[in-house]
């Protein structure tokens, strides 16, 4: 077992993820894959303030994450993955990782053409194909900001 849940969240590790999602998912490791935060020591250190109790926290670059998964570093751990870019999810699937589920939590309000999928989230036009490819692998994709929100399938919004 490795990735048990993945999430799209423009704020990555923040209050809602740390205090609501992480305790309910209860992984062994919360993993943020993001080059901007992984490669900037101050940003990375600030984000570490959000570390929930009782689990390891990784804030790592794409390159490092892909290499670590390839070398089976997290086999035997239950990983909750949070990213901003769905391409990362697709890349991991392409290199053979199993990702049973992807939750779209929140995104920025795009300046380009996009589909609104909840009060908090949009799918940009150029991301639609990425989400379709993810869904084709069998990964369930839902939209849900906080655990108390009702969970909607993404397919409801993307036809």
């Amino acid at each position: 077992m490795s990735i048990i849940l993945s999430r799209i969240d423009s704020r990555l590790l923040h209050g809602i993820v740390a205090t609501q999602w992480a305790p309910s998912v209860a992984p062994d490791r919360l993993m943020i894959i993001d080059d901007e935060f992984a490669n900037d020591p101050v940003k990375k250190e600030s984000m570490r303030l959000g570390k929930p109790a009782g689990m390891a926290l990784s804030i790592i670059s794409r390159e490092k994450a892909y290499a670590n998964f390839s070398s089976h570093k997290y086999d035997g751990q239950r990983v909750f993955l949070v990213v901003r870019d769905p391409q990362i999810i697709l890349d991991l699937l392409h290199q053979g990782e199993k990702i049973p589920k992807l939750t779209i939590g929140c995104t920025l309000i795009p300046e380009t053409e996009a589909v609104k999928v909840s009060r908090r989230a949009y799918v940009k036009k150029e991301e639609i194909e990425i989400y379709r490819s993810i869904a084709k692998t069998g990964t369930e994709i839902t939209v849900q900001y906080v655990p108390a929100d009702s969970e909607e399938p993404l397919s409801k919004y993307l036809e």
Partner: peptide, 13 residues
């Protein structure tokens, strides 16, 4: 408001 929130994180620098 709270340690783990993104608001607090942004002041860290």
């Amino acid at each position: 408001d709270m340690l783990q929130g993104s608001v607090n994180q942004k002041f860290y620098p």
